[in-house]
């Protein structure tokens, strides 16, 4: 038995990546997720399109933001604030963005407290009036499915080709790296798109998740997001020697996206030291787009920033993936210029 234990320890010592995953990663994850795991809302952005009514003091955690919009509903649709006060009537009405679950709850709590203290204000929750958790989670979960298929399954597919020796055969065939690349990821793209339709339809049928916006706008967001995730999958495959390594790396990209993208914990509630990680993750922006389109019915103009950032991430990740994949399939591209040393 000792021989077996010693053999395992020796193998473990040589497999640095697994060793790092077993020792360093839990520590890193504990620190990062410890600071990220918070449902406490410390700031609720509030807009006054007709100006702040005199005598209306802002209790914590409200923080006033400027807006050029005059329509409170549009303010929320564009994500300019979490709460918009309509003071055009005899009694101010606070419209609360129900697509931001925890923020909305914090806002309602604060309004209830304020009302008890003698500051009557009517509240109305828009986009998710019941503050239903499923409605908020399902759009992001659709992104998680895309991420799973795009990153993990794609990376396994490419690594499997390398392990079986068929990638070498492809390199000798009259196929350009682009042909192989596109041919390889196109089926995963279709499967991921199908998965997404299934998830959203199931969410709609089982959990009554609303769909208030443009399906084409969501499709554009999904396309850009897939662009990033498929690129991530290929990138992972180019640095993985086997399927085990590909799974390890894919999980290392999946886990932070689940916990730091705002899918579960609000980004605003995270410590600033880890929040910036969330802003580097594609699921953060897909989540914003999916919730924006499905729950708030946000128009294209309201989502230009997350769409643009996803496109930028896509260009970087996909570009790197193409370069590495090309180098793997056509390593002798510059061999003709080499001469004997």
């Amino acid at each position: 038995m000792w021989a077996m234990v010693i053999k395992e320890l020796r193998q473990m010592r040589r497999d640095r990546r697994t060793l790092a995953m077993m020792i360093v990663m839990p520590l890193v994850l504990l620190v990062i997720f410890g600071y990220a795991a918070s449902f406490d809302v410390t700031k609720v952005e509030i807009a006054f399109p007709q100006g702040q009514p005199p005598g209306l003091a802002l209790p914590d955690p409200f923080e006033s933001v400027d807006t050029d919009q005059s329509d409170p509903v549009e303010i929320l649709q564009f994500g300019e604030a979490d709460v918009a006060i309509d003071s055009s009537g005899p009694k101010p009405v606070a419209y609360v963005d129900g697509s931001e679950l925890f923020t909305a709850r914090a806002a309602l709590q604060a309004f209830t407290t304020a009302a008890a203290a003698g500051a009557p204000i009517q509240t109305e929750v828009l986009f998710n009036p019941e503050l239903d958790t499923s409605a908020v989670l399902v759009p992001g979960l659709a992104g998680l499915v895309l991420l799973f298929v795009g990153s993990l399954v794609t990376s396994l597919g490419v690594v499997r080709e390398r392990q079986a020796g068929t990638l070498e055969q492809l390199a000798v065939m009259p196929l350009s790296p682009r042909d192989v690349f596109v041919g390889k990821i196109a089926p995963y793209f279709l499967v991921a798109a199908f998965d997404m339709v299934v998830v959203l339809t199931t969410g709609w049928l089982l959990f009554d998740v609303p769909f208030n916006g443009s399906i084409w706008l969501l499709a554009l967001g999904a396309l850009l997001f897939l662009f990033v995730t498929l690129g991530t999958g290929v990138l992972i495959s180019t640095v993985s020697e086997n399927q085990g390594q590909a799974i390890q790396l894919a999980l290392m990209t999946l886990l932070p996206q689940v916990l730091l993208s705002g899918l579960i914990f609000p980004l605003e509630s995270m410590a600033a030291g880890v929040r910036w990680i969330g802003y580097l993750l594609p699921l953060t922006y897909f989540n914003q787009i999916a919730r924006g389109v499905m729950l708030r019915g946000a128009p294209f103009e309201a989502l230009i920033l997350p769409l643009g950032l996803l496109a930028g991430l896509g260009l970087v990740v996909f570009g790197l993936a193409v370069l590495r994949f090309r180098a793997e399939l056509a390593p002798a591209r510059r061999s003709s210029v080499k001469v004997a040393a």
Binding site: E168, A171, V172, M173, P174, L175, S176, A330, P331, A332, R333, R334, S335, S336, K338, V339, A340, A341
Partner: peptide, 25 residues
């Protein structure tokens, strides 16, 4: 010879040209 590895030194030719997609066919 097939162009699957890049030589550290020396020169490889397939059909009197460097290994390319055209030569691979």
């Amino acid at each position: 010879l097939l162009g699957l590895e890049r030589p550290d030194a020396g020169n490889v030719r397939l059909f009197d040209q460097p290994p390319t997609r055209a030569t691979r066919s």
